[in-house]
């Protein structure tokens, strides 16, 4: 597991730490609090799908479910005194709802969950490593 997600991990101290923590998003998409948010995605022809595969989809429900999941993850971070997880949850929530909310296809956690949904139609790719690689090729 990414060290920033471990219980007792310190919060990031500088820009380099922030970069390190942000890379934990693909693994965060496999936490049980948000794993239930993985949407049902129609099978696409190839793996990995790009952002165009989700153009025009109504993803408001996904956003609402992920907000609940992030709330639960925030409680886990507090319970486990995980500064890295707490920072990641705060950051992802900040860009999920409110004035700074990003489009779904620009939000890393939503993208990771969409990719997990698409991965169900492809054997062996619903893993943090393959989701991470797909995120790097998202565009």
């Amino acid at each position: 597991m990414h060290p920033a997600l471990h219980p007792g991990s310190p919060p990031p101290a500088d820009d380099q730490d922030v970069e390190f923590v942000l890379r934990a998003v693909p693994e965060l998409a496999f936490f049980p609090e948000v794993a239930a948010c993985v949407p049902a995605v129609p099978a696409t022809g190839h793996w990995p799908p790009g952002r165009d595969a989700f153009a025009g989809h109504d993803l408001d429900d996904l956003r609402a479910h992920v907000l609940q999941g992030l709330t639960a993850l925030g409680e886990r971070a507090e319970r486990e005194r995980s500064g890295g997880l707490a920072f990641l949850v705060r950051t992802l929530t900040y860009f999920l709802v409110g004035p700074a909310a990003l489009p779904a296809v620009e939000h890393p956690l939503l993208v990771a969950l969409l990719l997990r949904g698409a991965a169900r139609a492809h054997e062996g790719v619903d893993t943090p490593l393959e989701i991470a690689r797909a995120m790097d090729r998202w565009g």
């Binding site: 922030v18 970069e19 942000l22 890379r23 950051t91 860009f95 700074a100 990003l102 620009e106 939000h107 890393p108 993208v111 995120m135 790097d136 998202w138 565009g139």
Partner: peptide
């Protein structure tokens, strides 16, 4: 995606 998000953060 990661680079754009990093800049926003």
């Amino acid at each position: 995606l990661g680079l754009r998000f990093s800049r926003l953060v």
